[in-house]
Design a binder for these strands. Structure first.
Length: 830
RNA sequence: GCCCUUGUAGCCCAAUUGGUAGAGGCAGCGGACUUAAAAUCCGUCGAGUGUGGGUUCGAGCCCCACCGAGGGCACCA
């Protein structure tokens, strides 16, 4: 007998150290741009990383899941583009730089190096040749070039408006970055300021953003589509022009209920709109000013609270109903929003609760024009909004709501006093920021020429080297203090001029990074359209749902603009989207302030990369949150050790007892082979439907079956055992690459198992020749029969009725009804 | 307040889409190994699917109501 070597132990640290350099050497995940490469192309994209520090548990989950998708496609023989880059502009770097008296680049690029090393150790199948950072001048040069393309097409413009201001970040914010009245980033209460700012004209694309969701249906999570739909907020209605006494131009309102025009008893203008100031009569001026002051002081949070009493002030002017000639008083109020519709409304208190609340507060008349059969709103103070018959409405009387809407629009259009229209809740994207660490807006302001784009040859407009206190937020951009940088000659006329001192929202950077991956080193253009055509659109995008109406909406907008420019042949950048959940602890989001952080590095040190990845994937459906208290990385590690020992046994087969032969061994071998191929089949279909946790469960099953076979009749040298273990290694490689690679080597193969090729199940080994048929009496299982797959209905019924247990249950009487579903089920009703 | 999703062993989760409720894991229990413990290995217990109705030969799955959880929207005219 051969002396058994001391048994090798599963040691993830040894494996990590052994295989990482090997993979670095062979770089198996480099995408090939070669147009003659005939493999199918797959672009698998993870939302790129913000370099806030080292990777954390959230990264570990998102990238583990994305990596399963990418590695699966590698195994399927695709030419996979699976890149990574860094979204490296942004506020945290700037704040760190102020605290550390540095330039933000120092902190940023240190963190990027740290994250890159961690990604490598975490064994994500990235193409490392394509990395870049949005804060590199080689990148933001093209961010600026794209901005100028938008500018030239009238899609980037400046306007003065009341904007969201974050007093903590000391900068303006886009609407998308204000969540329930608070800054999306820091949580401070957002206030309003009147400022001139840069915007992207995303509203021009509202309808297309809505329409093109049809092709995302079923491939994007439904809730993301719903959120975008709500955000865009399309509503159909009409513009109605109200003449104003003493003003040449009428004032236009938007309404979804032109049918209720006869019920308009007053008129309301947003208090903070310029129109209110214009229309206020001299004797109401001081009351108006006082009110406007109050409104300005109110935060959005106060404004948004639903049960807040209505406030307002009369302007001492009157508007004229275009259909009736009736004069109605004009009020200023803050329940009408300056930047939705036209900032003015006709108030129909009988059929709109907000108007009714206002009418009640100021004792204004309520006139019912739709008889819905409900109680009179003038008495109940409950507005009626349903369908009914029009009353008190002259030409509309007797019509239904829909008929009246159509008719009212006809009347208005005939009179030249209005028209049918569609209004959107979506506002233009405010893109300028009063901060340093972003892409400078490549515009020069000249007293003579006005806004002048920086000529393409002068791009990039590089950030001047500022640091520490120079970056302190002052309400204007720190760039304004960089005098040498700011003062330039006008590119057009040569006169003294100044650079625009704002930088772009970092969401501009991330709106096109996925194009850059297709030709990351192109020095002559933002991206090479030919390469983009080959790789895009993205086959699978993976990232968090928190970007549902930020990054994802902006990226869709960018793609449509670039399509219109003629650079693309598709309208939607991301064919399919998967939202992973969050990693939480004890039911709550991890946060430093709560002190419930789980440290990724510590988890990896304790359990190994593979066990952490496996835990992430096995915890449940990909889109569900993972409560780290509910899962067991130790259990994952135990499983990995179990699988790994299978390969160890096969490797050491020579020192073990030879496989048994004979009938027992043959039957056991066939059983194991069936289990192997059943697993291949089931794991494949689980993967195809993104049920990664189920795939793992199947691998565990096969692991258990293989262990039994080795310890039982087959031993470790039987070909059926080798087949099982080899397939386990390949399938496991999607989730536990180190363990799988080590197994693969022990089975006598060269690296890398990641490209071994996805196995195909042998159909003949999956097909069962018999199946257990359940016989129910009145729905209760009374017998089980082993029957051939192809059994006929008649034969099955006879067989079932002949069963003694069935006969006993039926008491000898024939069933009144028999439901026969061959081959699996018989249900007899006595 | 409105809309969407969801509820299966103590816990995390499966269930071929209307046909035997259980695949996998965690925890528990028993055993093996150990001087002992940990680790490891083997074995094992475990719910009738949130509640109440309905459709059906048959419901975890479909319909209605209610309860709980999560999410979105919330003065958008």
């Amino acid at each position: 007998m051969v002396e058994a070597k001391e048994a090798e132990q599963f040691d993830f640290k040894v494996m990590q150290e052994k295989w990482l350099p090997v993979w670095e050497e062979i770089a198996p995940f480099t995408a090939r741009d070669d147009p003659n490469d005939t493999r199918p192309r797959s672009y698998v994209l993870d939302m790129f990383s913000y370099p806030s520090g080292d990777l954390h548990m959230g990264h570990a989950e998102a990238f583990a899941l994305g990596d399963v998708v990418a590695r699966y496609r590698f195994q399927q023989g695709h030419n996979v583009l699976h890149p990574i880059a860094w979204d490296s502009f942004g506020l945290p770097a700037e704040n760190a730089a102020i605290a550390r008296d540095e330039n933000p680049a120092t902190w940023t690029y240190q963190n990027i190096d740290t994250q890159a090393e961690s990604f490598k150790r975490y064994a994500i199948s990235f193409d490392w040749t394509r990395r870049f950072n949005t804060s590199d001048p080689e990148y933001y040069r093209w961010t600026q070039a794209l901005f100028l393309q938008f500018y030239e097409r009238g899609l980037a413009y400046r306007k003065a408006s009341s904007v969201n201001w974050c007093p903590s970040c000391q900068t303006v914010l886009a609407n998308e970055q204000v969540v329930a009245g608070e800054c999306e980033r820091c949580g401070a209460t957002v206030t309003k300021r009147e400022l001139t700012q840069w915007y992207f004209k995303i509203t021009d694309y509202a309808q297309r953003l809505l329409d093109d969701m049809a092709e995302l249906q079923g491939r994007w999570p439904e809730r993301v589509l719903t959120m975008q739909r709500n955000w865009i907020g399309r509503s159909e209605g009409a513009f109605v022009d109200f003449a104003i006494e003493g003003r040449a131009e009428p004032v236009r309102v938007f309404t979804t209920r032109p049918d209720t025009l006869y019920g308009a008893t007053f008129f309301v203008i947003a208090a903070d709109s310029p129109l209110a100031r214009e229309l206020v009569s001299p004797d109401q001026l001081s009351a108006f000013e006082k009110y406007l002051d109050e409104v300005r002081r109110a935060t959005d949070i106060e404004r948004l609270s639903a049960d807040r009493p209505k406030t307002g002030v009369p302007l001492g002017r009157f508007a004229v109903n275009p259909l009736t000639g009736e004069q109605i008083p004009i009020w200023a109020a803050d329940y009408v929003l300056a930047d939705y519709g036209t900032g003015a409304i006709m108030a129909v208190p009988a059929h709109d609760q907000r108007d009714l609340d206002f009418a009640k507060a100021f004792n204004l008349p309520v006139r019912k024009v739709v008889e819905t059969g409900e109680d009179d709103p003038a008495i109940t103070f409950v507005a009626t909004t349903g369908d009914g018959v029009l009353v008190n409405s002259d030409a509309l009387n007797g019509l239904s709501k829909d008929q009246a809407i159509t008719k009212a629009i006809e009347l208005l259009e005939a009179a030249g006093r209005g028209e049918k229209t569609i209004n959107y809740r979506l506002r233009d994207w405010l893109l300028s920021r009063q901060r340093y660490w972003g892409a400078p807006i490549p515009i020069i302001h000249c007293a003579v020429c006005g806004e002048v784009p920086v000529p393409e040859v002068d791009l990039p407009v590089r950030l001047p080297e500022l640091k520490g206190d120079q970056l302190k937020p002052k309400g204007i951009s720190p760039l304004a203090g960089a005098t040498e940088w700011v003062n330039v000659k006008c590119p057009k006329c040569g006169a003294a001029a100044k650079r625009d001192t704002d930088t772009m929202d970092t969401f501009v950077d991330s709106s096109w990074y996925y194009f850059r991956y297709c030709s990351p080193h192109d020095a002559s253009q933002a991206f090479d359209p030919a390469q983009v055509r080959r790789w895009m659109p993205v086959a699978q995008y993976v990232g968090g749902v928190e970007h549902a109406i930020l990054h994802l909406l902006y990226s869709r907008f960018f793609t449509k603009v670039l399509f219109d420019i003629g650079l693309l042949e598709f309208n939607e950048p991301f064919t399919a989207l998967m939202n992973q959940g969050q990693v939480i602890l004890n039911g709550a989001a991890m946060s430093k302030s709560k002190g419930n952080m789980v440290d990724l590095g510590q988890q990896i040190d304790e359990f190994g990369v593979d066990a952490v990845r496996l835990t992430m994937v096995f915890a449940g459906p990909a889109e569900d949150d993972i409560d780290w208290a509910d899962v067991s990385p130790a259990g994952s590690k135990k499983f990995l050790a179990r699988v790994w020992r299978l390969a160890l046994d096969v490797q050491n087969a020579g020192t073990h007892a030879a496989a048994q032969t004979g009938a027992d061994g043959d039957a056991a071998a066939l059983e194991l082979r069936k289990a192997t191929h059943r697993t291949i089949h089931d794991a494949t279909s689980a993967l195809d439907s993104f049920r990664f946790n189920v795939m793992i469960a199947r691998l565990m099953e096969l692991t258990n079956a293989t262990r039994k076979a080795i310890d039982g009749p087959l031993g470790s040298s039987h070909p059926a055992v080798r087949e099982a273990v080899e397939n386990l290694a390949i399938m496991l490689s999607l989730v536990a690459p180190y363990t799988a690679e080590d197994m693969w080597a022990r089975l006598g193969h060269q690296p890398t198992v990641a490209l071994a090729g996805w196995p195909v199940a042998d159909a003949t080994l999956i097909a069962e020749d018999s199946v257990t048929c359940v016989v129910q009496i009145a729905g209760k299982v009374r017998a089980r029969l082993e029957v051939p797959l192809e059994i006929t209905q008649d034969a099955l019924e006879k067989l079932a009725l002949a069963d003694p247990a069935v006969q006993a249950a039926l008491g000898g009487k024939p069933p009144s009804r028999a439901v026969i579903k061959p081959p699996k089920l018989v249900n007899l009703v006595p």
